[in-house]
Amino acid sequence: MSDAVRPRRNFYGRLKGKALKKSQKTYLDEDLEALSPGPVSWEANPARAPLDLGARFGGRPVWLEIGFGGGEHLVHQAAANPQVGIIGCEPYINGVAMLLGKIRRAGVTNLAVHPGDARDLFDVLPEGAIERAFLLYPDPWPKARHHRRRFVTAEHLAPLARVMAPGAILRVATDIEDYVRQTLEEVPRHGFDWLAERPGDWRAPWDDWLPTRYERKALREGRRPHYLTFRRA
C-alpha cells in the first residue's frame, strides 16, 4: 500500500473540552505514547501498513471499543478479561486523559489507546483481526440533517466489518430510539446478524455490563437504554 492516497474525511464532534488538570497532562505526557497500538496516523504510517497486533498483545484475541468516553467500561473489560488485548479509540483528548488516569489506578496492562478517528485505525487494522467490538452511547446527532454523521453509516460500518472476524460480536448501546432504528437498518446491511430473540435481549444489559456515566444520565432524564448484539456473518 505504498501508493495509498489519504482520503478526505470530515470529522464532526469535539476534540478538546475544558482545560486539563495538571495530573491529566502528566498522564498524556508520560503514558500515552507507550499505549499506542502502533503507527496509526498518516504521518507515521503513510503506506497504511497493517498493525502488528501480535507484537502488541502477544497473540491474544483483540477487542475494540469505539468512542470510550471516560474509559470506565474499557478499563472494566480489560480488568475482567486479562486473556484478551483491547484497543480503545477516542478522539476527545479530555476523555483520553481520564482513561489514562483510570488505567494507572487499575493497573491493567492489556490495553492500547488510539487518540483519534476510528476510520484511521480501521485503515491499518488487519482484516478479521477484531473478535469483539463495542459502540456504547455514540454521539446521537439528533437532527435529521445530521444523521449521516452517525457512526452507523456505511463510511464506518464497511471498514468495521472488514476488520472483524467471522463470528465476532458487536455490541451497541444507545438511549436514542431513532438511533436504534438506524442501527437495525444499517448494521445488518454490512454483514452482521442481529441476535435478539425476545424483548429482554435488547432491554436488559449484558451480564458483564458496567453502566457508564452517559447511561446514568439517560436514566435520570427518563430515556430507556437499548442493548443490541450483532454477530459478524
Rank of each mutant, 00 (worst) to 15 (best):
A4W: 07
V5S: 02
F11L: 05
Y12D: 07
K18A: 12
K18F: 02
L20C: 02
Q24C: 11
E30N: 15
D31L: 15
L35M: 10
L35Y: 05
L35A: 06
S36M: 08
W42M: 09
A47Q: 14
R48I: 03
L51P: 00
G54K: 01
F57Q: 07
R60M: 10
V62A: 05
W63V: 14
G67A: 09
H73P: 08
A80Y: 12
N81P: 09
I87S: 01
E90H: 04
Y92A: 08
G95N: 13
V96P: 01
L100N: 09
K102A: 08
K102V: 06
V113P: 04
P115Q: 10
G116T: 07
R119K: 09
L121C: 14
D123L: 14
L125I: 09
A133K: 02
Y137V: 11
R145A: 02
R148P: 04
A154M: 05
H156M: 11
L157T: 04
A168S: 13
A168V: 13
I169A: 03
L170R: 07
L170C: 10
R171Q: 09
T174E: 13
D175L: 05
I176G: 01
E177K: 08
Y179L: 06
T183H: 02
P188Y: 04
H190T: 08
H190P: 15
G191W: 00
W194C: 06
L195I: 03
R203L: 12
K217R: 15
K217Q: 15
R223T: 03
A233M: 01
